[in-house]
Simulated assay, not measured.
Amino acid sequence: MKVAARHGTSTGSTAHGTCRAQRTRAMPASCAGRIARFAAHARRVFVTLAAFGAASLACAAHADELTGTLKKIHDDGAVALGVREASIPFSYFDGTRTVGYSQTIALQIVDEIRKTLSMPQLKVHEITVTSSNRTPMLLNSQIDLECGSTTHTVERENVAAFSDSFFQYAVRMITRKNSGITDFADLAGKTVVTTAGTSDERLLRRLNTDKHLNMRITSVRDHQEAFTTLKEDRAVAFVMDEPIVYGFKATDPRPDDFVVTGTPLGYEVYACMFRKGDKPFRELVNGVIARAQTSGEAERLYRQWFTQPIPPHGINLNFPLSEQNRALFAHPNDRALD
């Protein structure tokens, strides 16, 4: 029995030792796997945190490098965009939202700002402006950018900066077809309406003085009020940018009652307006406009708004691309024409 007992004990001890040895060999492999997986996970977390930290530092550094309008937009988390209510087909309210040829350009610029600032959720605050208040609102930082129907003139360069031009046009007038008026000399002694604060008003007043026409010039708040003044026969003609008056003629319920006429008082260009002394913002804006013009995108956009039905009533302005605008698209520039 002792032998047996010893044998049994020896056998049991051996079995126990074998089992323990097996466990000793198996456990490290299992633990090693878990430890390896944990280490790999820890490395991924570390890398992610490191990348996040680096990105955060990069963003912070990037934000610290921003100046001018881009810094203001970054800090505000929004672009304050000046828009027009009735500059058809450039920037106008269609009953639901602001649309138009230059409004589309403005939103393309906003998209470029989003990319530059790495702020895909950047908001747009649309603020309605008029010809009279758009420049003061820009200078007071109430708006950051305005791409409506603002003429780039040498005089305005004293207070604001302008992008590459996106449209060239003539200054003419719209009148009733039965008025007998065909040119500006026919306005002598008559009441004429234009929009206050525009370059057209300045040209019209200069013409009145230089030619001694004795016109009674009425300057009103916006284009819609000016056209209404003409329709209500409180003026015989509305002097304004040719595409603007074509827009009113096309969208009127009785378009055949009106005619656009007159030897052009001059040729001018529209551009986006922003604050002076802001080279980074100027380069961003001009980059968007120049790329669109030289790629053919600007001509496609022109056809959409000037030769096809536009909202809200599907009216077609039938205003083909001029050779002047074609040349502008081929050679983007920011020159005033006055």
Score class of each variant (00 low, 15 high):
Val3Tyr: 15
Val3Cys: 13
Ala5Tyr: 12
Ala5Lys: 14
Ala5Cys: 11
Gly8Phe: 09
Thr11Asp: 05
Thr11Phe: 08
Ser13Asp: 04
Cys19Trp: 02
Cys19Gly: 05
Ala21His: 04
Ala21Val: 06
Gln22Val: 12
Gln22Glu: 08
Arg23Met: 08
Met27Tyr: 08
Ser30Thr: 03
Cys31Gly: 03
Cys31Pro: 02
Arg34Ile: 15
Ile35Ser: 12
Ile35Gly: 08
Ala36Gln: 11
Phe38Trp: 13
Ala42Gln: 06
Phe46Leu: 11
Phe46Ala: 08
Ala51Asn: 10
Ala51Tyr: 14
Phe52Trp: 06
Phe52Ser: 00
Ala54Gly: 09
Ser56Arg: 13
Cys59Ser: 13
Ala61Gly: 10
His62Trp: 12
His62Ala: 13
Asp64Val: 03
Thr67Arg: 03
Leu70Cys: 03
Arg84Cys: 12
Glu85Asn: 10
Ile88Thr: 06
Pro89His: 05
Phe90Gln: 02
Tyr92Lys: 09
Asp94Ala: 03
Arg97Lys: 11
Thr98Val: 10
Val99Ala: 13
Val99Trp: 08
Val99Gln: 07
Gly100Gln: 11
Thr104His: 12
Ile105Thr: 01
Ala106Thr: 01
Leu107Arg: 12
Asp111Leu: 04
Leu122His: 01
Leu122Tyr: 04
Val124Ala: 03
His125Pro: 02
Thr128Ser: 11
Thr128Gln: 09
Val129Gln: 00
Ser131Phe: 01
Ser131Asn: 04
Met137Gly: 09
Leu139Ile: 07
Leu139Glu: 05
Ile143Val: 10
Leu145Tyr: 06
Ser149Phe: 07
Thr150Leu: 07
Thr151Gly: 07
Thr151Pro: 07
Val154Arg: 15
Glu157Trp: 08
Asn158Met: 08
Val159Asn: 02
Phe166Gly: 00
Phe167His: 09
Val171Met: 05
Ile174Trp: 01
Thr175Tyr: 00
Thr175Asn: 00
Asn178Lys: 08
Asn178Ile: 07
Ser179Cys: 10
Ile181Cys: 01
Ala188Lys: 11
Thr194Met: 03
Leu203Tyr: 03
Arg206Gly: 03
Asn208Ile: 09
Asn208Asp: 13
Asp210Leu: 04
Asp210Arg: 00
Lys211Asn: 04
Leu213Ser: 01
Ile217Ser: 09
Ser219Gly: 09
Arg221Pro: 10
Asp222Met: 14
Asp222Leu: 12
His223Phe: 10
Leu230Gly: 04
Asp233Pro: 02
Val239Pro: 04
Met240Ser: 13
Asp241Val: 01
Pro243Ala: 15
Ile244Leu: 15
Phe248Thr: 10
Phe248Ile: 03
Ala250Tyr: 14
Thr251Gln: 08
Pro253Tyr: 13
Pro255Gly: 09
Asp256Met: 14
Thr263Leu: 11
Gly266Pro: 02
Phe274Ile: 00
Arg275Lys: 00
Arg275Gln: 01
Asp278Arg: 00
Lys279Gly: 12
Pro280Thr: 14
Glu283Ser: 12
Leu284Glu: 05
Asn286Gln: 15
Ile289Cys: 15
Ile289Val: 15
Gln293Cys: 04
Gln293Arg: 03
Gly296Ser: 07
Ala298Phe: 13
Arg300Glu: 15
Arg300Lys: 14
Leu301Lys: 07
Gln304Arg: 08
Trp305Gln: 00
Gln308Tyr: 09
Pro309Asn: 14
Ile310Glu: 02
Pro311Gln: 06
Pro311Val: 01
Gly314Met: 07
Gly314Gln: 04
Asn318Thr: 14
Ala327Lys: 15
Ala327Thr: 13
Ala330Ser: 14
Asn333Gln: 11
Ala336Thr: 06
